[in-house]
Write a protein that binds this DNA or RNA. Structure first.
Lengths: 128, 128
DNA sequence: ACAATAACTCATCCCAAAGTGAGTAAAGGA
DNA sequence: TCCTTTACTCACTTTGGGATGAGTTATTGT
């Protein structure tokens, strides 16, 4: 006989459960999307156009780059503005105050990672 | 004619590329695994056994719970110790200094999220 | 002997994030 | 007229994190 299966996915439900339990889950889900913090960092450093970002990350696809820039704009982490007198019209991105404050915390996370970095990989022998 | 396809995945390659570029990518990938920071937080608050954690998160499966606890131990964010005179032998978890320092940064992230939280969802009307 | 409980582990399936190749609009130059 | 460049978008496939249901080891109580 066929195994009875659930007709509704608890996968997306659980994500909502966690988001409802604490806002930080939404934040974590947002910042961990691949390339996202890298892009925010680069834009803050002045690498701020579609094409220059593409060159900075050669293995990053156009689609994901466009998607991430759209997300960053929607979340007000960056702003977009036309560069006048360019043809075809070019767009320059810039970080917002919200974005820069987030980057500061990401930097803390970076320092934490370095501070507690396991030299060699002794902890990898733990198994069981 | 058949479209020529790549035989090697750039998916996992890109993860390594990012990890090599900056350690913080590893950190981000680690902390964003579902339930992980919740569990770390609960353990720090004293909800520190397999079964009590299960009861705290009813929709969290046994497998993921076991997996996360294993990861947290492997990364030295928590420690495990036997509770004496219990039957069957029970295990209590506790956060490490490394784990508590991480939680402090997660708390910053939480505050950042609250500070910049969009009231209503006006930014959701951005589309284009 | 059998049930109960704690703390897991295993094989399998599902789904959404990530990647792939191609196509689009608009403007200027050869 | 066609080519180039910028900044995207679309339809499709792949991949690995997460969920599911069942099984395992060990110990005490009845």
């Amino acid at each position: 006989m066929a195994t009875p299966r659930k007709e509704l996915s608890t996968n997306s439900e659980n994500r909502q459960t966690l988001a409802a339990a604490c806002d930080v889950n939404d934040v974590l889900a947002g910042i961990s999307l691949r390339w996202k913090m890298q892009l925010l960092y680069c834009i803050n450093e002045g690498v701020a156009q579609f094409t220059t970002l593409k060159k900075t990350f050669p293995t990053l696809s156009d689609q994901i780059l466009g998607k991430r820039l759209k997300e960053l704009r929607a979340e007000s982490l960056i702003t977009a503005s036309d560069i006048p007198e360019t043809t075809p019209p070019q767009i320059r991105y810039a970080t917002t105050e919200k974005g820069r404050e987030l980057l500061a915390i990401i930097l803390d996370l970076h320092h934490w990672g370095l501070k507690w970095k396991t030299v060699g990989n002794s902890y990898c022998t733990v198994n069981g």
